[in-house]
Simulated scan of single mutants.
Amino acid sequence: MTDATPETPDGRPGEVFAAFLKLGLTSFGGPIAHLGYFREAFVTRRGWLSDSAYADLVALCQFLPGPASSQVGFAIGLMRAGPWGAVAAFAAFTLPSALLLIAFAAGAAALDGPVGQGAISGLKIVAVAIVAQAVLGMAKSLCPDRERAGIAVLAVALLAALPGPLAMVGAILAGGLAGLALGRGAPSELDGRLPVPITPRVGAICLAAFLALLLVLPLLAGFGAGVALFDSFYRAGALVFGGGHVVLPLLEAEMVRGGQVSADAFLAGYGAAQAVPGPLFTFAAYLGAVASGLGGALVALLAIFLPGFLLLLGALPFWDAFRRRARAQSLLQGANAAVVGILGAALYDPVFTAGVGDMADFALALACFVLLVAWKMPSWAVVLVGAAGGVGLALV
């Protein structure tokens, strides 16, 4: 392997932090909306990237496991101001929602009585509508034909037979292999190249670090609660294909079935995460705070983002060549179809089974779903409607 001369960034971390802090405070709507905000802010308004370079970067981050919008933001910061620019972009975009969710975790225990419990119940019901909308949208885009719809159904069947995080990994691998067999992919037609400020050698080191942590952390989990918590969130972040909502079943398997967080607290926090701006992965900060306080929130937040960033740094120097291969596109198509099945299974258990207890709960969940899908109401507003509805049902 020979090192190419990396691009030299010409920006400052301070300007990156200021630009991303505004987005971290105002970017509602999930990862697809975030990508739209980024394009307007950094391609159209500031001119930090060309349209072709931005499209190339988005394609890479959608291909890799991890939080796509946060990976795009991290890469924009890296290209603009080097490693400190990447850190600045991550911190500014992530901290506002993380701090809000940590505050919610600290105050959730005080929500007692019919009003507080009704609000918690409403948040759990809202989660049903949010995940159902995600499944519907992802199915339309990632399972547009009968073959990929079949892969999604087979993924659900596999999870029904063998529940747990290992089955999720198996379903994704099986979906990727099925995609290769179908061979529907085509080479990328994107032109241009990314202005990558790192060398292939650094990329290879990051890929090695990603794999080493994935293999070694489970062996070290017995050395303390902090290491075990880091392992749980690192593994979840390493296996997420298809966007933030897909982390739900992985975190539920690690935290709820692992006994660190109750199912009610899990779903209440997931509902609250829909009402804050920024990346959905900051839900990890809430879970870490519930499990182990402020220190747990910090550990969880860093651990869930780290694998996606290591993979991004590892892939950036090699992406231009790899993305043009048809077999790579076929693999991704099959894996993404399996992801739809995994999220569909999570919609039933734990989201629906824990959130909907009777017909009144179901009516509220259905109303929230219609507000999201038919009325196009923003998710944070639907969260407020669901919480108010939960309080109303508790007082009736």
Rank of each mutant, 00 (worst) to 15 (best):
R148L: 13
I151T: 03
G185E: 04
G175S: 03
C143H: 03
I172L: 15
L182H: 13
A161T: 13
L154E: 09
G179T: 00
I172D: 05
G175R: 00
L162A: 15
A174C: 08
L158S: 06
L177W: 09
C143T: 11
L180K: 04
G164D: 08
G175C: 03
P144Y: 03
L166P: 11
G183S: 09
A171M: 03
M168L: 10
D145M: 06
L182S: 11
E147S: 14
A181T: 12
A161F: 15
A152F: 01
A155D: 03
G179R: 00
P163M: 04
A149H: 09
A155L: 02
R146D: 14
L180N: 03
I151K: 00
L173Q: 08
A157I: 12
V153W: 11
P163F: 01
A152G: 03
A155S: 11
R184Q: 15
R184P: 09
R146G: 10
G183V: 07
R184W: 11
L162D: 14
A174R: 00
I172C: 11
G175F: 01
A161K: 10
A178E: 01
L154V: 14
R146P: 13
G175M: 01
G170P: 01
I172R: 07
P165G: 12
L162C: 14
L180V: 08
P165V: 14
G164K: 07
E147V: 12
L162S: 14
P165C: 10
R146W: 15
L177I: 11
P165S: 13
L166S: 14
A161Q: 12
L158N: 02
D145E: 09
A149V: 13
V169C: 09
L182W: 13
L180Y: 06
A157P: 09
A178P: 01
G164F: 07
V156D: 07
A160R: 15
L182M: 13
I172P: 04
G170L: 05
A181M: 13
I151M: 07
G185V: 04
A174S: 09
G185L: 05
R148K: 12
A181S: 12
D145Y: 07
P163D: 05
L182G: 11
A161N: 12
G170R: 05
I151C: 03
E147L: 14
R184V: 10
A167F: 06
